[in-house]
């Protein structure tokens, strides 16, 4: 179990650069970090490390996304195992969120986006014609950067997913789903007496846990998290991180984060993205203590990003 970080860096907001203080302990002056030019030649070649996962459940092969003429991500191959937390890290605009949104086809709503390659979920191609994105999203839930509860009651927020998918046969079953979901999201104690209050009346951290409860109420197989803690204070962040740990027993979780401390704390494996390419994937410990690629090392030591 993790506790709150003493230095509180787990809660650095996404818009603010991390201080150039590295996990491996090398202090880098700010000027050096800003002035390190990235040579595109460094980007050639395949992903370093091991893209394979034990007990792989989500498998992405040669995934490319283009927004018009903008080639957002290139040839991403990555496996995500059952009950595994994979953290996607990298500087802003590196394509990690784009890759995340490919996994539940959220990019479908962007008209200019063209996704090529192959992504399978439990062996099933999620971009095949037979698979309805609606059905896919019931299996691959998503938690967003900013807590976005519906302007409805707390109960209705959690009950919305089960309702639209018809998961509960009657009211008591729905009540049960709402209770267990809130309980597993660690929110039940705080909201037990006010199910009818609007979800927006909660604090930021509570709202994010409400969003997580809303996601797990549908009982998905995979949970995608897009910087879930970037808008939260350190205490709320710590609670969410505990929750991620807890949830990883039952779900495959892919989390995008700008906080390397957070990646180190919650994930088993880390994938480092750079300019739309997957540079390095490996076990979290190994990436942070002994990065194989120069770019990865530069990023985690704070020279770029």
């Amino acid at each position: 179990m993790k506790s709150i970080d003493n230095d509180g860096t787990g809660a650095v907001p996404s818009g603010i650069d991390l201080q150039p203080r590295s996990v491996v302990g090398v202090e880098v002056p700010r000027e050096a970090a800003a002035g390190a030019p990235v040579q595109l030649t460094e980007l050639s070649g395949r992903t370093v490390g091991d893209v394979k996962a034990q007990d792989a459940y989500v498998v992405a092969e040669d995934v490319n996304v283009r927004y018009g003429s903008n080639h957002a991500i290139r040839d991403i191959t990555l496996e995500i195992g059952r009950n595994e937390v994979v953290a996607l890290i990298g500087p802003s605009g590196c394509g990690k969120s784009t890759f995340l949104r490919c996994l539940n086809r959220m990019n479908d709503s962007i008209e200019s986006a063209i996704v090529t390659g192959r992504i399978t979920l439990g062996g099933q191609d999620i971009y095949s014609r037979e698979l309805d994105p609606v059905a896919l999203r019931a299996r691959v839930g998503m938690v967003f950067q900013k807590p976005n509860p519906f302007p409805k009651s707390i109960y209705d927020n959690v009950a919305y997913g089960p309702r639209i998918h018809g998961l509960a046969a009657d009211r008591s079953e729905l009540d049960h789903i709402v209770h267990t979901s809130l309980d597993r999201a660690g929110l039940l104690k705080e909201v037990r007496d006010r199910f009818d209050d609007p979800g927006t009346s909660l604090s930021g951290g509570q709202q994010q846990r409400l969003c997580i409860a809303r996601t797990i109420a549908v009982n998905p197989e995979v949970i995608l998290m897009d910087e879930p803690c970037s808008a939260l204070d350190p205490i709320a962040t710590a609670r969410i991180e505990d929750l991620i740990d807890e949830l990883s027993k039952n779900y495959a979780i892919v989390i995008v984060t700008h906080s390397m401390q957070q990646a180190a704390r919650v994930s088993q494996r880390v994938a480092y993205f750079h300019l739309g390419m997957l540079i390095e994937v490996d076990e979290t410990n190994r990436v942070f203590t002994n990065p194989q690629h120069k770019l990865t090392e530069d990023y985690i030591t704070g020279r770029i990003g």
Partner: peptide, 23 residues
């Protein structure tokens, strides 16, 4: 209407018509 609400509903698996009608 904030796009975050649309995304939240879409992410939960609401169809386009459900996103419109419910949110």
């Amino acid at each position: 209407v904030p796009p975050s609400i649309r995304e939240a509903a879409t992410g939960l698996g609401a169809s386009r018509m459900q996103v419109v009608a419910h949110h």
